[in-house]
Each structure stands twice: as C-alpha cells, then as structure tokens.
Computed example of a mutant assay.
Amino acid sequence: MDAFEKKTLKISRGYTYTYYTSEGDRSLPTLLFCHGWPDHAEMWKGIAERLMDTKFPMIIPDMLGYDGTDKPTDPAEYKWDAMTKDLIDIMDTEKADKAISVGHDWGSICAARLYNYYPERVVGCVFLNVAYTPPSRERFDPADMNKMAEQAFGYGTLHYWEVFAAPNGGEILNDNIERLYPLLHAVGDAQKRYYCVPGALRQHFNSNDPDPEIRPYAQDPKFRQEFIDRMRRDGFDAPQCWYRAFKDQQHLCDKDLPEGRDKVDVPVLYIGAKDDAACRVETMYPAIQQGWLPQLDQKPALDAAHWTPYEKPEEIARLVKEWLGKNYAK
C-alpha cells in the first residue's frame, strides 16, 4: 500500500482503526472500501491503485477484527449500527462528506448498511461477489438458509457456517491455517465441495486428504506466506465474530431502521463471479424483484471464484472506472 498514506484513528466507541487514504479531488465523493473475511486493506491494492487516475479520494480501512485495527472478541461489538458509525467517524475525520461505499464479501453487506444507516452520506454502492442484502428484521438461522438454497440450487450454500460461526470456530481455523489457505483459493468446484457440503470442512481438517489445486494468483509463495503469517499473528477469534454476531442475532439492530431504508436509491454496481458457489449471482434476484435497487448496473459474472479482488483486479478496476465515469463525471 505504498501509494497510500497510512493513518490510525481512535473512533468514538474507543477502538483504534488503521486505514489508508489517497487525497484525490475533494469535489468528488470518496471511495470507501470495505474488505471481508479473512482479508485486510491490502486486498484492495490491485483495484485501488488502478483507480487513482480517476482522482476520486479513497479511504481503505482494515475492518474491525483485522490487521492494524483493534480485534474485540465479543460478537456484540460487530453490530451493524456500531460498525457503520465507526466508518462515519473515519469519514468525518477525513472530511469526506459523501462516499461511494465499495465492498467485497462481508464488506459488501457493510457497504450496503452504510447506506441503510446513513443514506445522506452515501451516493453510490459497489458490491463484489455478495449481492445486496437488505436490513435484517427477522431472526437468522443458517439451517433455514441452507434449506432455501437446496430448493433453489440443489445444495446448501452456508454449510461452512458449521465451523465459521461455531463458538470455537476461531480455534479450529487457528489450528488449520495452512490447510485453510488452499480451500480459499481452489480451482473448479472445490469451494462447493468443501463449503457447501455438511461436515466437509471439519472432515478435511481432521484428515490427511490432499489439498485441492489452487488458482494461479494464489500460487505466489509470498502471497501465501503473508496470509499465513498475518493470521498466525492475529488469529481468527475476532474475524469469526462477523459470523457469530449474525448467528447470535446481533443484526436485529436493523429492526430500528425505517422500512424505506431497504431501497438503495443511488447508483449501484454489482459484479459477481461464475465459480463462486457460496455467493451465487442469483441471490441478487430478490433485491431486483422487490425494487430495492432502482439504479442497479449488474455486470456479467466474471470468470473467477470468490476472491475476485485478487483474481481479477484489472477487470474490476476497468468496470468500476466506467461506472464512475457514467454516474459521477464532473
């Protein structure tokens, strides 16, 4: 992240965030990037550097629980109303009045919630891989979601939550970092076989079965070692709180939002991926059918899997640049 200025800020609820900025043209809205699990601000480097010539200011935080940012292990600290306020604190410090919230994985939901909670501050959204998820007003049960997915797709998409949202999920992943890495970045249908089959993750971690082949971008030894070193240093206890918070119904803070906030009435760009078995592009259909995204620009699915910012940064940057030019040209 050498092209960006690294900063830290103690936000209003007491946690310290690390984030990176690019000054840009302050008459343009700020691109606010929200990474997901189990990443950090560095994930956006390949995209953000390619967007610097657009002159849009940028803020790229390590999200709560990751890398240079504090890592509470109480799931209650990961409520949407609290984490979106953290981002507003950063925006206010950087004098960024308006933002285009950009997210991947859990960061896509956080980017959406930033609009849901602060529509006066967000003038656009970009969602990568994870489709728009409206505010949550009902209890969440992964088993119910798996039943719905089985009816729609023939398999449950959230079986990996058996490990990820378990009370000891962080411990399990801490003990299996090297075995986890190839499962994140595997070729073909491996994501479906390990993430979308009951018990498959635990079985693999407890076996001597060979790891799947990994995608070209993840074959870089430096990329692999940096991930392993970072997660050995920081652990998974805090990152898994993003899952545990949802399973513990902390998301029901959304019930206090007005019903009209479900509609994202600003330009939205969605980019999915063909080989993302857990986060299928079809999950965007309900939002379209409900009229929640009246200004949606959905691109054809990329020939990639879940970690599109690593696998297709040039293509994503090009699509985002075109979308910015169409919607925010001066």
Rank of each mutant, 00 (worst) to 15 (best):
D2V: 10
T8Q: 09
R13Q: 10
T16H: 06
T16R: 11
Y20F: 15
T21G: 13
S22I: 02
L28A: 03
P29Y: 04
L32F: 15
C34K: 03
G36K: 01
G36M: 07
G36S: 07
K45Q: 13
M52R: 15
T54M: 10
K55A: 12
I59Q: 08
D67A: 15
D70R: 03
P72A: 08
D74K: 09
D74I: 08
Y78D: 12
Y78A: 13
W80A: 14
D81C: 11
D81E: 14
M83H: 05
D86F: 09
I88A: 15
E94N: 14
K95V: 03
A96T: 01
K98D: 08
G107N: 00
P119D: 11
R121F: 11
V123E: 14
G124K: 05
C125V: 09
N129Y: 02
A131G: 15
A131Q: 00
S136T: 06
R137N: 14
E138H: 10
R139S: 12
F140H: 13
A143L: 13
K147N: 12
E150N: 07
Q151Y: 04
G156T: 03
H159W: 15
Y160P: 01
I172S: 00
I172P: 02
E178W: 05
E178C: 03
R179P: 05
V187K: 08
V187E: 15
G188L: 06
A190V: 09
Y194L: 07
Y195S: 07
A200S: 13
L201S: 01
L201F: 02
R202W: 00
R202I: 12
Q203V: 00
Q203Y: 01
F205M: 05
F205E: 00
S207L: 03
S207D: 10
D209H: 05
P212I: 03
R215I: 10
Y217H: 07
Q219H: 03
R224S: 11
E226M: 11
F227C: 02
F227Q: 04
R230I: 04
M231A: 02
D237K: 05
A238R: 06
P239R: 06
F246L: 14
D248W: 00
D248R: 04
Q250L: 01
H251F: 06
H251E: 09
L252M: 07
L252V: 04
L252T: 03
G260K: 09
V266F: 05
V268K: 07
V268W: 01
Y270R: 06
K274T: 11
A278M: 09
V281Q: 15
P286I: 08
I288H: 05
L293H: 12
K299S: 09
A301N: 09
P309I: 09
Y310Q: 12
Y310R: 02
P313T: 13
E315F: 04
A317V: 10
N327A: 04
Y328L: 09
K330A: 15
